[in-house]
Design a protein around this nucleic acid. Structure first.
Lengths: 176, 176
DNA sequence: GTCGATCTATATCGGACCAATATAGATACG
DNA sequence: CGTATCTATATTGGTCCGATATAGATCGAC
């Protein structure tokens, strides 16, 4: 799922600037399983404009940089739906935490316990974020995404809870 | 968790060629939460060698390209452990599947059902892979990583099972 | 009341990383 | 006997991220 496709998808829900697209990842609905940086969003929007998949209108603002508001075109909408009909790339879950835990035998116990605590807290924050958005009007898709996130985070927390303690008795090895 | 750190970690478990490091991600222990491509592994090993964090010995083979077997140095081991003592980057879970489901209202029902089925099958394959490795000798870290993966995958499957059907009655919208 | 922080909004650059491709002989299978 | 897969290296094009730059607006703290 490249950034161009992600931008198209977001624009099917309404017009937006590059800045607003970026912020959608931090707030509402799109949390946790989709992301893109400014460094890829702005070039993506330019290319999409060249290709006629989105259109821009520049809204000049007094004493502010111009807003470039992007809208999806009919061609863009078709291209987006077509991309959802093709086989999807697989999920990619990169976890520095799991990687670090693979080497727990090389770390002092205190650090291992801390890794687990810190990670558990992060998961709890994400879970709380998902529950916050609960009240707002949602598409069935957003409902699904929130449920999916909840399911995974709850399971992760439960597992961490089970593991807590198991790494407190293991003998540590040289940490230098 | 950059590729250099990942390579260092793997080399703490024993010497390996770039090729073997890459393959470790597909087989044993490191499955699912860690990955790197040849295009980043080979340059990483070169740089690590320059920096003295790993050493190479070239094993000439008859009628085969030379094997470049990498070993971690004491400096490399220290650097690796130091990187595990610093705060870790957060997990990054990119899911084209969840992204597509966010737009289920734009897709024909059949496609949505297919998305769920296909994804569920992929998760089941991953779960089976984790259970396969069960028999082999494991470090506590590998045990943890396998348990973590299992917990998440089982929860995902359970959620998908609950959702199956919920997307069969939703009215579809134009798919072109 | 003014100073710093945060927000809106654009954009670029270096570097990291991936996917695909190239090379090339070995082995294994049908 | 041919073809696919395996061992093993490496590069290239392109995508993407993180950091940085710019710049005025707003808002809270002191």
């Amino acid at each position: 799922m490249d950034v161009r496709t992600i931008c198209l998808g977001i624009l099917t829900r309404g017009d937006a600037t590059g800045y607003e697209i970026k912020n959608l990842f931090q707030h509402d609905g799109y949390q946790h399983f989709v992301e893109a940086s400014f460094g890829s969003i702005y070039p993506a929007l330019n290319r999409l404009t060249e290709e006629g998949l989105v259109s821009v209108r520049e809204e000049a603002q007094e004493k502010r940089p111009d807003r470039k508001v992007y809208s999806i075109t009919p061609a863009g909408r078709s291209a987006f739906i077509a991309s959802l009909l093709k086989p999807l790339p697989e999920d990619r879950h990169r976890s520095p935490f799991v990687f670090a835990m693979l080497f727990s035998d090389l770390l002092p116990q205190a650090r291992v316990a801390q890794l687990i605590e810190t990670y558990a807290q992060e998961v709890q924050v994400k879970l709380a974020q998902l529950n916050e958005t609960e009240a707002r009007a949602q598409t069935p898709g957003e409902e699904f995404a929130r449920g999916f996130g909840r399911a995974i985070y709850v399971a992760a927390l439960q597992f961490l809870e089970e593991q807590r303690g198991k790494f407190e008795t293991a003998e540590p090895v040289a940490a230098e």
